[in-house]
Every structure is written in structure tokens, then in C-alpha cells.
Amino acid sequence: MSEQAPRIAIFGAGVIGCYIGGCLAAAGAPVTLIARPRIHDQIQASGLTLTDWQGRNQHVDAQALTIALEPEALAGQNVILVTVKSGNTVDAANAIAAHADTDALVVSFQNGIGNSALLREHLPGHEVLQGMVPFNVIAQGQGRFHCATEGHLALEESAGAAKLIERLSAAKLPPLLYPDITPVLWGKLLMNLNNAVNALAGIPLAEELADRNYRRVLAASIREALQILHQAHIKPARTGKVLPALVPTVLSLPTPLFRRIASAMLKIDPDARSSMADDLHNRRTTEIDFLNGEIVRLAASHHLRAPVNERIVSLIKAAESQGKGSPKMTGPELIQAVLHR
């Protein structure tokens, strides 16, 4: 990588990509956003406005960014942050192979477990690192993106990432570095099992987590996942305030006690919803196969079953196929569909 400021491309600049890319650009990094037409047109018209729950409020003019629709814009970039949906990882890898310089650093900031392995398989000439985004970002329209929850980016350790780390730190997104990031990914995935519960509920995250019925479903999903991980000899890392093994117990507490013990879980912007809820709302394919589906696949690989997560996957896929947005299931309805079948 060049000694000068690295040129950074965000490949798949959706909600997360626009927020990270916008923060980097606001801190002076040369950033190229490769986005779909809807996002592209918003940014061209309004620039980017970036806010967060701690008071960040920054605006980046469209003229301060390079905004592209096609992967040809990857040429000449020093760092490529991949933020496409997990189902599009192979297509992204093929585009990088076709258009990017071979010495470009590639970083996956995607949901799920196996994206960096896929990228490495298809990009043997590139250094590929795994990253993790713990926070929730809300798209508010007209180029406005709001970070609604806390958390630090995570990044696999590498000397080749020094300039990127410097730029992320300058953008007030300092990453935590890990020699082995896999346990962190599994810890994040456990917390991301709530994406589906929130999508099925169709209400803000704070409202959902304040309802014990929804929490009981989430607790069952995480408890089952922990059992499967144990059988697979995988120990997830702690990524929040509570040890993974204790999360189901805490979620199952009566609401007044839960509010006292887990107040940090409820420090969420009142409008925040999961990315999967946004996908259902916008009639897009969700990442359910790379979240709850990951637990189902891991169970099958060890000749086990994950019935709670299987049922949640089925409910999300049914909602996708109906194309009507969230089914807006009540807590008792979700308990009946997931736990009492």
C-alpha cells in the first residue's frame, strides 16, 4: 500500500457502507462509494449526513466523494471495504478480481461467518481481512444515516492494515484488533439472531426488547445456538456487556428485573430497527441464511438439529415470499409459532 493516504472504496455502499465511508470521508480520506442507483442518486442530490447516538453530526458534500454505480471504479483503489449482502459475496469477489489492482487490501465488513473465506478463495492474489460491524445504522432518507447503537469495529490483525486503521481512528471509528477474529464473529452472530425476531415483530428494537415474549423467543434461539456451538467446539467471544452463556438467562428475566440488570441492552435509539426488518419492509431478500441459517447448517454438519432456528428461518422466508413486509407477529404469536410447535 502506498505511503500516501490510501484510496478507499466501499463496495456495496448501503446503510453500513455509507456510514463507514461517510465517516472516513468526513475525516479527509479519499473515498469512493460504489452503490445501487437509489443510494447513488440520494448522495448526488444531498451528500451524506452522518449522526449517531453520542452526538456525531457531520455532513459530507457530494463533491467530496467519488460516487459510482459500476465496479470499474475499483481500479486504482488501495483498500476495498466489502459491505455487500452476504449472498452477493462471490459476485463481489469476481468484480474485484476483474477491476481492482492486485495489491489492494480487501476487508469484509459483512454479516455472517464465511465471507472472508469466500473472498480469499476467489481472490488468491489479494490480502483479505475479516472485519465486524457491531452497531446498527438507520437510513433516514436523503443521504442521512444514523448510528443508533454503540460498539467498536473489529478487525483481523495485519501489518498491511496499518494505514486503514489510522484512517478509521481519525474518523472516530477505531477498530479493536484480533489475531483470531472467528470467536468474535460467532459472538456477533449470536446477538444478530435478534435481527429475525425484530423483523418478524415489525416494531423498533427498544420496544421489542422491552417485551418479555419476544425476549423468550430470542433467548431460545441463542440458547440453542450456544448448545450447537458447544458441540462444534466453538467458543464465541463476548461482544457486549454480558457473557454469551448468560445472555439467554438475562433475556428470560421478568421485564422489571431485565430493565435493571440489562439496561445497557436498552440504550438504543427509539427508532432503531434491525437490518432484516428494513429488508422485509423494502421487499428485499434478507440475510437469514447467513444468521439463523448459519446455526442450522452448523447443526446439520454435526448431525444435529436446531428446530428453533429452523422455524425462525422458515417464518422469515415465508415473509419474503409474500412480499408484504413484516408479518408484525405479536409476542404470543411468535412464541406459538417458534416454541410451541
Rank of each mutant, 00 (worst) to 15 (best):
A201K: 04
G202E: 07
G202D: 08
G202N: 11
I203A: 14
I203E: 13
P204K: 03
L205P: 08
L205N: 06
L205G: 10
A206M: 08
A206P: 08
A206S: 12
E207N: 07
E207Y: 04
E208Q: 15
E208V: 03
E208K: 13
A210W: 05
A210E: 14
R212M: 05
R212A: 02
N213A: 13
Y214H: 13
Y214P: 12
R215A: 01
R215H: 09
R216W: 09
R216D: 13
R216N: 11
V217W: 01
L218Q: 07
L218C: 00
A219D: 07
S221D: 10
I222M: 04
I222F: 05
I222D: 00
I222W: 08
R223D: 09
E224T: 10
E224V: 02
E224W: 03
L226A: 14
I228K: 06
I228N: 01
L229T: 04
L229M: 07
L229R: 03
Q231A: 15
Q231R: 10
A232W: 06
A232P: 14
A232T: 00
A232M: 07
I234N: 12
K235H: 06
P236G: 06
P236R: 05
P236Q: 06
P236E: 09
A237C: 03
R238H: 11
R238A: 08
T239F: 00
T239R: 12
T239A: 00
T239D: 11
K241D: 14
V242I: 15
L243F: 06
P244R: 00
A245K: 11
A245C: 13
L246E: 08
P248H: 00
P248I: 01
T249N: 14
T249I: 01
L251W: 10
L251C: 00
L251H: 04
S252C: 10
L253W: 02
L253Q: 00
T255S: 15
P256L: 06
L257V: 15
L257G: 13
F258M: 12
F258V: 03
R260I: 12
I261M: 05
I261K: 06
A262F: 14
S263N: 14
S263P: 09
A264N: 07
L266D: 00
L266S: 03
L266T: 11
L266N: 02
K267L: 08
K267E: 11
K267G: 13
